[in-house]
């Protein structure tokens, strides 16, 4: 089987076989980043444009490194404001980039569906690097690769995703990725942060972290958007940390070899206690390393399409 898609817009539409294909490609590129000369010629002569409408350092850097290690030419384009403010539509921006004969467009945008709309109207291969609260597929694939690396497989693992599920694209992509790969997913958070009918995506919903963490093999902590305080989603950071923060006491209820994951950047002492971030169970930096490999694998597959 080969990867036939023009774009990667989200994991909701991907089969487990397609995800496995991306992970295999990623694994084959993992060692490149460990070489002294971190470069292979797979994308030589190709142009990758990082179009980021939202501020991002780590995701953009990860895509940029991935493209460069594949020998592609990379251009970063970070309009400071959305197209609405700028007066140029997103589609017009994309058409301009298309006219410059780019091959892959990596898009980060604050509006859900932006990548899908753009992909439908463009010849470019579009990679969704995060669209609103919708999806962040390469992050979830990095997480999947990390879990597979540490646990051998994903099937039948007990995974808890904890925090602000409502506003998290990482959560949505991970729910699709993990459930399709056969994990059992429980989501944990205050009801104000659990969107309506989330159970329909094949997860169980919990509000009591102490109970929900019991026996889990993987706990994926979501970043708390501190600026959401004051919008009645949670009373205070103090109370949030007390009810939904991951501490070493809470971790004792989990499986012995539990993995602690976080998409970063971490609010130390809020969603994860300081000692847990630096503890043996945390694989947060492996996620980052695997992010580069996943993006390399994905861009390689997309460029092989024709």
């Amino acid at each position: 089987m080969s990867f036939k898609r023009k774009d990667l817009l989200g994991l909701a539409a991907l089969s487990s076989e397609e995800m496995a294909l991306i992970l295999e490609a990623a694994e084959s590129f993992q060692e490149v980043s460990g070489r002294e000369i971190k470069k292979v010629p797979a994308l030589r002569g190709k142009t990758v444009v990082n179009l980021f409408f939202e501020p991002s350092t780590r995701t953009r850097t990860s895509f940029e490194l991935a493209a460069k290690r594949l020998s592609a030419d990379v251009v970063n384009f970070s309009p400071s404001s959305s197209s609405v403010v700028k007066g140029e539509t997103l589609l017009d921006t994309a058409r301009n980039i298309e006219s410059m004969q780019a091959d892959i467009l990596v898009l980060r945008h604050s509006s859900a569906g932006a990548a899908e709309t753009l992909a439908r109207n463009s010849r470019l291969s579009v990679i969704n690097a995060g669209d609103g609260w919708h999806e962040h597929p390469t992050q979830a694939l990095s997480d999947l690769l990390t879990i597979r690396e540490k646990k051998g497989q994903v099937r039948d693992l007990q995974v808890a995703i904890v925090g602000d599920l409502a506003h998290s694209r990482v959560a949505r992509s991970n729910i699709h990725a993990l459930t399709k790969m056969g994990a059992n997913v429980r989501v944990v958070g205050p009801p104000t942060m659990i969107p309506l009918s989330l159970h329909r995506l094949g997860v169980t919903v919990h509000h009591d972290f102490d109970k929900a963490i019991s026996g889990v093999d993987v706990v994926l902590m979501l970043r708390l958007q501190l600026e959401r305080q004051g919008r009645s989603l949670f009373p205070s950071i103090r109370e949030y940390a007390r009810l939904y923060g991951l501490t070493s006491e809470r971790m004792e209820r989990a499986a012995k070899d539990v993995l602690v994951m976080h998409p970063g950047p971490v609010n130390r002492g809020v969603e994860i206690a300081h000692d847990v971030v630096d503890g043996a169970s945390a694989v947060i930096l492996d996620q980052v390393a695997n992010g580069v490999a996943v993006r390399m694998g994905l861009m390689y597959l997309l460029s092989q399409r024709n």
């Binding site: 909701a12 859900a112 569906g113 669209d131 609103g132 609260w133 919708h134 999806e135 694209r169 949505r172 969107p195 309506l196 009918s197 989330l198 329909r200 995506l201």
Partner: peptide
């Protein structure tokens, strides 16, 4: 509309 579809699409409901 806020419901199962908005949850899946990530569109504010």
């Amino acid at each position: 509309h806020e419901g199962a579809v908005s949850t899946e699409l990530g569109i504010p409901g």
